[in-house]
Design a protein around this nucleic acid. Structure first.
Lengths: 129, 129
DNA sequence: TTAGGTACTTACCAAAAGGTGCATACTTGT
DNA sequence: ACAAGTATGCACCTTTTGGTAAGTACCTAA
């Protein structure tokens, strides 16, 4: 049935999602979310401004929006220090940390196959003209 | 610097992508791609119609489109048997298989945290009214 | 006083993604 | 003859996503 012993397993499960993968993907859908998770996983609590400068292609609107969603999804924690020039920082929850760890292989795959991916994207771009 | 020893690593690298994760995500972006990969990883060569019935929320247009992109990205191989009622099947390339394997942890995460995710999505839906 | 930094919020708009439905060309089953 | 199945292609439209630019309230430094 499977082609070899290391075939991915992904049991179709509960209502709403076709499988775990599906569930995960919906949570991390959003242009900047994985990058945010990645960033937070690297450096512990991070202030808004730092994130902003790190993920520097993201606009304020997008960054905030995704941060709110991640917070609502209990992947990150927002801490407002209630100080007089605003000071807020973000950190991973245990759930968020575990997700960030599940992203590692994807990250590795991308790194290992970056040459391929780059080539492929060049072709795609060329094909669109 | 890192919060603990099992912190994800994701080295910022080549031009275009901020890191391997970024590269990977661009390749699998698309509502059905991960599901297609998953499906193909389970069962070896699969005919179009089977995929179609498997990923049954996808429309023909979408499915075909994503299959074409996956093919262009060298993640799957399309085999047209040139038979008289059309017969075409799709299978993973080595690259595609390796990517499918990198998806396994995400899949596992989703399965393990499905309850959380389901709850969180219910809240999101409720909040939108 | 004016500029700049903090962390946002909002309104408006453009682009991308995705969906619906019809068309193709050929075959098999009724 | 006619409906149905095969794997697509195409035109049109809506929804979702993301971007731009402005505004807010409060503070500090020049």
């Amino acid at each position: 049935m499977s082609q070899d012993s290391s075939t991915p397993t992904c049991t179709p499960t509960l209502p709403g999602f076709t499988c775990g993968l599906d569930a995960t993907l919906r949570v991390i859908a959003g242009k900047w979310k994985p990058l945010i998770l990645y960033f937070l996983a690297q450096g512990g609590p991070t202030r808004y401004g730092e994130l902003r400068r790190a993920v520097r292609d993201a606009s304020d609107k997008m960054l905030i929006q995704q941060l709110k969603e991640l917070e609502a999804d209990d992947l990150i924690k927002r801490t407002d220090h209630k100080e007089v020039p605003p000071r807020v920082d973000y950190s991973l929850t245990p759930l968020g940390l575990s997700l960030a760890q599940a992203l590692v292989p994807l990250c590795a795959w991308g790194t290992e196959n970056m040459a391929e991916v780059t080539r492929v994207f060049a072709q795609r771009a060329a094909a669109q003209r």
